[in-house]
Design a protein around this nucleic acid. Structure first.
Length: 230
DNA sequence: ATCCCGAGGG
DNA sequence: CCCTCTGGAT
């Protein structure tokens, strides 16, 4: 530790925006599983896995995807699947048959609207059942190589605390974060940006919570201008 | 009782 | 923007 670290001291001016490279690497070490989550053979698998990730505690999706894709390897197969059979495979994720219906419906949408292929188009993706802005961003960022960041309330809050933006508008937050990553830019691939987004969400829910952030347990505390502030 | 890596509808 | 849905895990 430097000689003087007392917050608010004259010789200790406010930290500037957290270095994006250091944030990314710290979060990467903290949440390595996010990379596995994006590791899929094709866009169909990634899309289904991402849809399954919604509203799930912890990332258990990769527990079921091997069986799932072994039985139904593409949209056409899943579109014709028996709901009960899919439910059995997906059951550990919770929500009973709901998730099975969701991904079967998604597969049918893919078949009907896009011949079973996954479109690289934000609006077309969001038109598919079960796919919203966040899922479409993850897919297009991780698979199709677009520099996109899905911004929810957690990402917005973290971005503000890290000094990356002052905005509450998700579009502006996304823009500001991407600008920051570019500015600090070390290895800012589209996939890295997607991973950063997923990890920011995780970190926001687990550590950098809205009410009482656990700065004492935060791996970003040494670069975060808001550490110890709240 | 509360929480999830949202989506869809009003 | 706010609300609901939906079920298992902790």
């Amino acid at each position: 530790m430097p000689p003087s670290t007392s917050r608010g001291a004259v010789e200790d001016p406010l930290l500037g925006p957290a270095d994006a490279g250091r944030v990314a690497s710290s979060l990467a070490a903290e949440y390595p599983g996010a990379r596995t989550e994006l590791d899929h053979r094709d866009a169909f698998e990634l899309l289904v896995a991402t849809v399954l990730s919604a509203q799930t505690t912890d990332v258990r999706v990769n527990q079921v995807t091997p069986d799932l894709f072994a039985d139904w390897p593409d949209a056409a197969a899943l579109a014709g699947a028996e709901e009960a059979a899919v439910t059995d495979v997906v059951r550990p994720l919770g929500m009973g048959p709901t998730r099975a219906r969701r991904i079967i419906g998604l597969a049918r949408g893919l078949v009907i609207d896009h011949g079973g292929e996954v479109p690289d188009d934000q609006a077309a993706l969001e038109a598919l059942p079960g796919v919203g802005r966040k899922t479409a961003h993850v897919l297009r960022g991780a698979w199709f190589g677009h520099s996109l960041l899905a911004v929810d309330t957690h990402v917005g809050r973290l971005a503000r605390r890290l000094g990356w933006t002052a905005s509450t508008d998700p579009r502006a937050v996304e823009e500001d974060v991407i600008a920051r990553v570019d500015a600090d830019g070390r290895g800012g691939s589209a996939e890295d940006l997607t991973l950063l987004g997923l990890r920011l969400i995780l970190h926001g829910r687990r550590v950098c919570t809205a009410r009482t952030p656990r700065c004492g347990d935060c791996v970003l505390a040494d670069v975060c201008p808001s550490a110890g502030t709240a």
